[in-house]
Each structure stands twice: as C-alpha cells, then as structure tokens.
C-alpha cells in the first residue's frame, strides 16, 4: 500500500471531488443537453413527417391536376367536335344556299332563254309568214297574169275532168 501510494484520505477526497463534478455537470449542463437533443430529434422527425405530408399533398395535387387536364382535354375534344360540326353545318348550309340560288339562277336563266327562244321563234314565224305571203302573192300574180300558164292550167283542168268522167 505504501509503495503504491494508496491513502484512504486521498481516496475519499477524490471520490468527493468527482461527485461534486458529477453534481455540477448534472445541475448545469446535462439537463440542457438532454432537452436540446430531444428537441432536435423531434424537430428532425417533424421535418420528416412534414415532408411526407407535403409529398402526399403534392402527389394529390398532381393527381387532381392530371384529372383536370384530362377533363380539359375531353372538353377540348368535345368543343372541337362541336365546333367542327357547327362549321360543317354552316358549310353545308352555305353550300345548300349557294346551290339553291344557283339553281334558281339557272332556272331563271333557262326561262329567260326559253322566252327569248320563243320570242325569236315567234318573230321568225311572223317574218316567214309575211315572206311566204308576199312570195305567194307575187307568184300568184305572176302566174295569173301569164296567159300560157292560164291556158295550160285550163287544159289540165279539162283533162282532169275528162279523166274523172271515164272512171
């Protein structure tokens, strides 16, 4: 014991000094550290849960957006189809109208042409009649005034009459 330097008084003094240190550390430091570590752990946990929640929310939002986008796309398609239909109808109407008008015009034009043709025919007929009349008048006048033709005509008539009697 003597060579090792173990002395009960020193031993007890060292024990007491260590216990004082333990008390001081516990009283002034460890409480704060424990609290700080706990708080830090909790805050880290909280950030994790917050992040998870945010991520969930984000995915939900994305889903909603997706759905909305799909709806929008469907609506767009529908609207486009409707618009196309309407445009088609308008086109058809225009075409129909145009066709109708064209027909009407055609009919009108045909009528006009017919009328004109008729008029022309009438004119032509009138002209031909007068022309024929004048020609006939003139021919008749000439024939009648010709004694030879009169004689011949007379003969012919006589002959015709003879023939009719013999039969």
């Amino acid at each position: 014991m003597e060579t090792l330097g173990i002395n009960p008084i020193l031993l007890i003094a060292q024990i007491i000094s260590f216990l004082i240190l333990l008390f001081v550390m516990k009283r002034f430091l460890y409480g704060y550290i424990q609290k700080a570590l706990e708080e830090r752990k909790n805050s880290i946990k909280k950030t994790f849960t917050d992040r998870e929640e945010l991520e969930k929310r984000l995915t939900n939002l994305e889903k909603e957006q997706d759905i909305k986008r799909k709806e929008m796309a469907a609506l767009n398609k529908k609207l486009e189809a409707e618009a196309r239909k309407a445009a088609d109808e308008v086109k058809k109407e225009i075409v129909n109208k145009a066709a109708l008008e064209g027909e009407r015009e055609l009919i009108k034009a045909r009528e006009r042409i017919n009328q004109e043709v008729d008029n022309a025919k009438k004119d032509l007929a009138g002209q031909a009649k007068t022309l024929a009349k004048t020609i006939v008048e003139r021919v008749i006048q000439e024939q009648i005034s010709n004694p030879d033709w009169q004689k011949a005509q007379l003969n012919k008539s006589v002959k015709d009459l003879e023939n009719n009697e013999t039969e």
Partner: peptide
C-alpha cells in the same frame, strides 16, 4: 481538470444555444 470542466459546464449551460 475538475475546475476546467465545471466552469465549462456552467458557462455552456448559462449560454445554451439552440
């Protein structure tokens, strides 16, 4: 050593920061 540790503990405890 005990003195240094105790003083460090007290000072740190008094100015404990987040």
């Amino acid at each position: 050593a005990i003195l240094i540790l105790a003083v460090a503990a007290i000072i740190t405890g008094k100015n404990f920061k987040r």
